[in-house]
Design a protein around this nucleic acid. Sequence first.
DNA 1: CTCGATCCCTGGACGC
DNA 2: TGCGTCCAGGGATCGA
Length: 299
Amino acid sequence: MPELPEVETVARGLQKSIAGRRILSVVLGKTDFIDDPAALEQHLPGRQIEAVERYGKFMLLRLSPAALSAGEATNGDAAPASLLVHLGMTGQLAPCAAAEPNAKHTHVWFRLDDGRELRYVDPRRFGRMAYLTGALLAAELTNFGADPLQVSAQEFAQSIRSRSARIKALLLDQTVLRGVGNIYADESLWRAKIHPERQGAQLTKKQATTLRKVLQDVLQKAILARGSSISDFLDAEGQPGEYQRRHRAYGREGKRCFRCAATIRRVLVAGRSSFFCPKCQPAPRSPKRGRAKQKTRNA
DNA sequence: CTCGATCCCTGGACGC
DNA sequence: TGCGTCCAGGGATCGA
């Protein structure tokens, strides 16, 4: 499940392996995750991939301007353009030799000028792909919050402590911060000892400071480990990440907390599984909709 | 503003 | 072995 560290890993890998290559042609399979499939076929051939960048959980393949033949009317191809790619849950984007057999669920083939193919594989097709220029591209990228690795302490605290939504929902909200997903939200909340259902406005300044710090630390360490591979994440070299070995909360329901040995629990917050330690991360006094259900648990 | 519900989609885990 | 069921979840959208 690609979140910021996984997307950063893929983007860095692609920057190394395909930046500077020219796209010769595009072959499409299933296209229901592509904004305008015909636009890819029309505008990508002949374009050079100048750079691969990450924006939140998106990747931007920056494209060279299209060459205009003499007397040809400009149709927008001369404007700065990018291929926007979101990997969704199961997307993979990686170059390979053209002779390589196709993996199942390969939906897009970009033939490159060095004989390789950049292929997009996505079993569940929760990803997204779009060719965007100028104003449309800019419009797509507004409404996102700050990058969690860049956000200042003041901006982070302000955007969290001004909100009544639960902190887990806020961390997942891409208009608050761009790039955090379920894994790194839970991991950072565990490290900051903050319950996922605590309201943003209930966080003290110190807690906000701590949360930003551990979030950045977790993300940076995860990038160094080339991301987390839970089920199927592979980077641009087809290699899994290693950070799942360092998870302390995510996916650990029923196991012991690494800090206090209490049993890690799971609740749904904002429709997502949220793993936390009930002892290290004390529940808020009056969770938004949580009755203090004192269920007697059979030990 | 914030929430839950619903949908998209397939593979994998699990129970019988 | 095979089948049915449930679950995973990022994001869009709708209604409350």
